[in-house]
Design a protein around this nucleic acid. Sequence first.
DNA 1: GACCTATCTGACTGACCGTCAGATTTTTGT
DNA 2: ACAAAAATCTGACGGTCAGTCAGATAGGTC
Lengths: 210, 210
Amino acid sequence: MTDDVFAADGRVIGTRAIATRRRLLDATAKLLTEQGILDLRVVDITRDIGSSPATFYQYFNDVDEAILELAKEATEDEKPLVRLLQPGWNKKTGLEQAHDFVDAYMVFWDSHHAVLRARNLKAEEGNRHFRAARTEANLLIMNALAAMVTEGVNAKRLPDSLDPFTTAAAVVAMCERLLAFQPEMAKRGSDKNAIRNTLAILLYGALTGH
Amino acid sequence: MTDDVFAADGRVIGTRAIATRRRLLDATAKLLTEQGILDLRVVDITRDIGSSPATFYQYFNDVDEAILELAKEATEDEKPLVRLLQPGWNKKTGLEQAHDFVDAYMVFWDSHHAVLRARNLKAEEGNRHFRAARTEANLLIMNALAAMVTEGVNAKRLPDSLDPFTTAAAVVAMCERLLAFQPEMAKRGSDKNAIRNTLAILLYGALTGH
DNA sequence: GACCTATCTGACTGACCGTCAGATTTTTGT
DNA sequence: ACAAAAATCTGACGGTCAGTCAGATAGGTC
């Protein structure tokens, strides 16, 4: 029962409809990547799957609903990252662990950046549902990061005036933003590897205090 | 001559037109703040100043052009921040200097966040003009930050594998993002002051290595 | 007051949104 | 295998907004 899929009016839908809905979601993700949220049109989405706007509204009340669902799917891919964030990064292996996390985050980002960007915009513009989605997505990661900071503070490697949760947010911010900047920074001579290294060092420093 | 103001077709305009154009820009900024870029309509902007859509298109070829101009105006307010970023932050006064910068940045952010958010979205979605605007805006600050990092690297306080420019980008990212997160984090118990302190400490650490 | 120029806008075309009634396809019952 | 019922899909429509243009209005000059 849990894996029932619903139409916009709430009724349970069958296999054909599930497939159509899925194609709509995929087309939405594709166009979001290619054209950005500002030029995303329902007509384009349905044209892309060889259908008509009316079909879209069978399954979603508006485009937001489709994007929100994509954002929730992205969140599922984010959860495994938490396993790379256990307290205990030490001088010997910590930097390498930071690298592992950065690498995993880069892969995650690359496959969902358009959807995540849309989610963050909606959240920042005050949309309740997208706020909740972002909060939920970041919660596990933020808590894991905050726990690492707390450990550093307790071990007196980090100043106790540091707020763990804010630091966690800063770390997430660095990751997201540097990856978004990437293409532009490449032009200024900072290649992907420099970004990867620098990010790992900054993470390692901010989280452990080493 | 330099302070001539132009219509959309390039002709120089007079005082009445300049005033109208200004009211359009102000209304654009206001609605951008109130409703966000996704719900920004030319009709609303012109309704707001008691005019008609045709008037808007006298002065701007599209909404982007108006937002871009607002973004450039914001950049002017950002330039003075560079003076707070001179190399030489030391153990005695450095943290306080970091606080000063964070405070100034908060004021700047508060008065322009809607426009900056729109600018960044457009830039990230690949719009050439907004990319250029963002790059130009960040350039002075980034260079100043990068110079501080370079100083830290030279003094062996920071690892030389750290790319100064990337670090500068990370610092800007932290500032922008934490301020954007602010309302949401308040709910989780991190108040404005905690954010201010944490940001200052992180900046101080990342920039100087102390 | 007559004329000239700058500024503004009503009215229009075309595109997209979101809806709904009815057409089409699939499933069910016998 | 066939008809009836249910599920799915879509053409066509009313409403709103983008962007254009010709003509109306306001301001300045002599």
